[in-house]
Design a binder for these strands. Structure first.
Lengths: 199, 199
DNA sequence: CTTATTAATGACCTATTGTTCAATAAGAAA
DNA sequence: TTTCTTATTGAACAATAGGTCATTAATAAG
């Protein structure tokens, strides 16, 4: 097998295996799962830690769509519609067992990855959403009654965002039964969230 | 030192250490952290797994207040006030780094503890909240416009509850900056949540 | 002070686990 | 086929880690 394919195969297997069983699983077990010898893994990744780093890289990479901010700020479209479109796209990108579990493990292990992701990416989105709500034309169905104080602004939007993220945690980490129809969920909570903001 | 105190000391140290570094840390490290020999730990806990089980027991025990349902269903008090009181008490009980982290680790490790906790305790609360919202007198400020379909009922209340739980995950697992004033947070989101339900 | 009891330990055992490396298999090129 | 290259492995090493046990230290009773 070509080195590129083999490396990819090992990396993919490691992502799934680490997501399921944690980073402490033995290289031996991972190898036997793939059907190769443990030694071969060390041909492609210097050490176990290097493999873990590669898993982090692969999983955190491309978990972000450049057009999300564009979708949210396109004021030619009504705000509810924008939020629903955004969260549908967001769900499609992040509703992934391996991603959710590894991001959570990263935080528990005190890795900087998830904290950086939250700081760099998620908080950007939250600010945009807060801005768009505030910018809604007064008198429109979803203009805010009164936006909370600056310190509460982002926490206010977390109310919406938390629901989506924790839905994924319930699904992929707690493995509890959740509503299957995600479009319905998104419509429900965006509607709920915005109606509380009406004048 | 008396056996009871020693056992308690080991257990408490294990809770903190496992919460921080995961269940894979060495007994040696835990022992040196406590300042005792590794062998002593095995005098009080048969095996490492027995210690882990004891940690689970200790952490999941008494994470539930019997009077919560009573608080939520006392219709002599306005619903917003009931929800605010409940979530203040809930926060006081669950806003604990060790608890949040170990409950999350339990789920990732496929332990039944957290799933059972969600099924037995949390979902009970969510049903009660849904019932109370629906029972709000028509025309009151927070009577529901229209309660969603039966399948969406609980998911609807998750919108409120998720925000509280994910706030704690952000704080204790992601260790991201969060709003310090929890009373303010609770007031904000309960208010937000109920106002969306008004007629 | 002596002795009995037991909390506590240090040294050791064994299995596990990351990692290495000489040897082998497989496949392409000549 | 022969040769060259390289993907792959089996076996082993060294450090790690759970667990045991004979011995020691501490404490309280007589």
């Amino acid at each position: 097998m070509s080195p590129e394919m083999r490396r990819e195969m090992i990396l993919e297997a490691a992502i799934g295996y680490f997501a399921d069983h944690g980073f402490e699983v033995q290289i031996r077990q991972l190898a036997s799962k793939i059907g190769i010898s443990p030694a071969l893994i060390f041909k492609y990744f210097e050490t176990k830690d290097a493999l873990i780093d590669a898993v982090y890289e692969a999983v955190f990479e491309s978990r972000w769509q450049e057009d999300w901010v564009g979708t949210l700020t396109d004021r030619s479209i009504p705000l509810p519609e924008r939020l629903i479109r955004f969260y549908r796209s967001y769900m499609a990108t992040v509703d992934d067992r391996n991603w959710i579990r590894i991001a959570m493990r990263a935080s528990l292990d005190n890795s900087v990855m998830t904290r950086r992701y939250l700081a760099d990416h998620v908080s950007k989105i939250l600010v945009v959403i807060a801005d768009e709500i505030e910018a809604a034309p007064p008198g429109s169905a979803f203009a805010p009654r009164s936006m909370p104080s600056p310190e509460l602004r982002i926490e206010y939007v977390w109310h919406l965002h938390s629901t989506v993220i924790y839905y994924l945690i319930r699904k992929h980490i707690h493995q509890a039964p959740v509503l299957h129809d995600q479009d319905e969920l998104i419509t429900l909570i965006v509607d709920q969230f915005l109606h509380a903001s009406r004048p």
